Amino acid sequence: MINFNYETVFSLDNEKQLSEWIEGVISEEGCQLEEVNYIFCDDAYLHKLNVEFLNHDTLTDIISFDYSVGKNIHGDIFISVERVADNAKDFNVPVNEELQRVMVHGVLHYCGYKDKTDNEAKLMREKENHYLSQLV
């Protein structure tokens, strides 16, 4: 089950399409969806989580808490819509595209992908692009 929660003035207008897309990503990666909760928030909300849980005193666009067991995917993905909008401007891409990239990025972590090294980050970006191309 995919759940969308809003802790700021924001809402998705295509929840059903995005749910089906994320479910497809998880399935294509050979994993089983248990539950993924997306929580859309502002910079202040996510910054507080970043300090409290990760000891990082910085702004970020996404924090994910992975409760997956093996290939059974379960987790909470917090996304700052403010940070996503700023990043979209910086990368010169539409806000929805950047938002969808961040959404799939979190799920790909749950499916076992990392992005700490250059090679890992390159593979992660390739996977993001692959799945973004499936969303029409």
Rank of each mutant, 00 (worst) to 15 (best):
G112E: 12
R101V: 00
R125H: 13
V25R: 07
K114D: 00
L135T: 14
V104F: 09
C111T: 08
E15F: 08
T60L: 02
R83M: 03
Q134R: 13
V107W: 07
G70V: 09
C41P: 12
D86S: 10
H56W: 13
V9P: 07
I39F: 09
E82W: 07
V84W: 05
D43R: 04
Y38E: 00
H109M: 04
N87G: 01
R125G: 10
D86W: 09
L135F: 15
G112M: 07
N87I: 01
D57Y: 11
S68K: 00
L54Y: 13
K89S: 07
E82S: 05
I73C: 08
G30I: 00
I63F: 11
S19R: 10
I2K: 12
L99Y: 13
Y67D: 15
F4G: 07
T58D: 15
V84K: 06
Q100R: 07
D90I: 08
N119R: 09
K71F: 07
K114T: 03
W21D: 11
V9M: 10
A85R: 01
V25I: 09
E15G: 01
E23C: 01
E7I: 02
L18F: 14
C31M: 05
L54W: 14
V93N: 09
C111D: 14
N3I: 01
D115P: 00
T58Y: 15
N92K: 00
D115N: 09
G106I: 05
I77G: 13
D42A: 04
E28S: 08
I22A: 08
R101K: 14
V95H: 09
S80Y: 06
N5K: 05
L49A: 04
M103C: 06
N129K: 02
T60Q: 08
E7Y: 09
L18I: 14
H130M: 12
R83G: 12
D43H: 04
Q32Y: 06
L59F: 12
Q134D: 04
K114G: 04
K122T: 12
N92C: 00
F53A: 05
I26A: 08
Y67C: 10
F10C: 01
M124A: 03
Q32N: 10
D66Y: 11
F10H: 03
P94I: 09
Q134I: 04
E35G: 02
Y131W: 05
H47R: 03
H74P: 02
V9C: 03
E29L: 00
L33V: 01
H56Q: 10
Y6Q: 05
N87D: 12
N14R: 06
E82Y: 05
E23T: 03
L99F: 12
Y6W: 11
C111V: 04
V93R: 15
H74D: 15
T117P: 12
S80I: 06
L135K: 15
E82K: 00
K48G: 10
F78I: 02
I39P: 10
E7P: 08
F10E: 06
T60W: 02
E128A: 03
Y45W: 14
E29R: 05
E29S: 04
N5D: 15
Y45S: 12
S11M: 04
I73K: 06
L108F: 10
D43V: 01
C111G: 11
H130W: 10
S133P: 11
